[in-house]
């Protein structure tokens, strides 16, 4: 079955025809060419496909595209403004919050959601916020540091 949906993606309004079984991840990647959310498990266990849906972190592999009619979605492509990187992106670069990089988009999205809720999170809160984002390189310590520094810089 086909569905007509309208939603805001990275600040831009879009309309699209999607199939019932299509996931949000698939539509973002294949139809809209937004490849920052990554395919990692398709079962919501790894967080590589995280996006913000109305300000909340979701695994886009677990959301049907037909459900996002009217929603506001943010991917990493929408983080930087014009020519300036988002403070989180800058901080991840400066503090080695990235190794192979495959989990990086999901980490940034979870971090963004956290900073939207709490302007200056404790280490414990950051660990908790990232628990659904797997990083096989084990870069968690530097990712946490990157988020801490970014949150301080924002103030």
């Amino acid at each position: 079955m086909k569905h007509e949906i309208r939603f805001i993606i990275n600040g831009e309004s879009r309309s699209l025809t999607v199939l019932s079984q299509q996931t949000l991840l698939e539509v973002l990647r294949e139809d809209l060419g937004l490849t920052s959310p990554k395919h990692g498990c398709s079962t919501g266990e790894c967080g590589a496909c995280s996006v913000l849906l109305n300000g909340e972190v979701v695994n886009s592999c677990m959301v049907l595209a037909a459900e996002v009619d009217g929603a506001d979605i943010l991917t990493v492509e929408g983080l930087a403004t014009d020519d300036e990187l988002h403070p989180l992106q800058k901080s991840f670069i400066d503090h080695h919050g990235v190794q192979c990089g495959y989990c990086a988009s999901g980490m940034l999205i979870s971090a963004k959601a956290l900073l939207n809720r709490t302007s200056r999170p404790h280490e414990e809160e950051i660990r908790e916020a990232l628990v659904g984002n797997l990083c096989r390189c084990g870069a968690y310590a530097d990712i946490i540091k990157s988020i801490q520094v970014a949150s301080r810089a924002r103030r």
């Binding site: 990647r29 937004l34 920052s36 992106q89 991840f92 670069i93 990235v98 990089g101 495959y102 990086a104």
Partner: peptide
Amino acid sequence: PLIEAQRKLTGVTCYAGD
């Protein structure tokens, strides 16, 4: 700095599925 870091953190880096 890691040369690829900025591309990785802006979602531009191409991986197998991209």
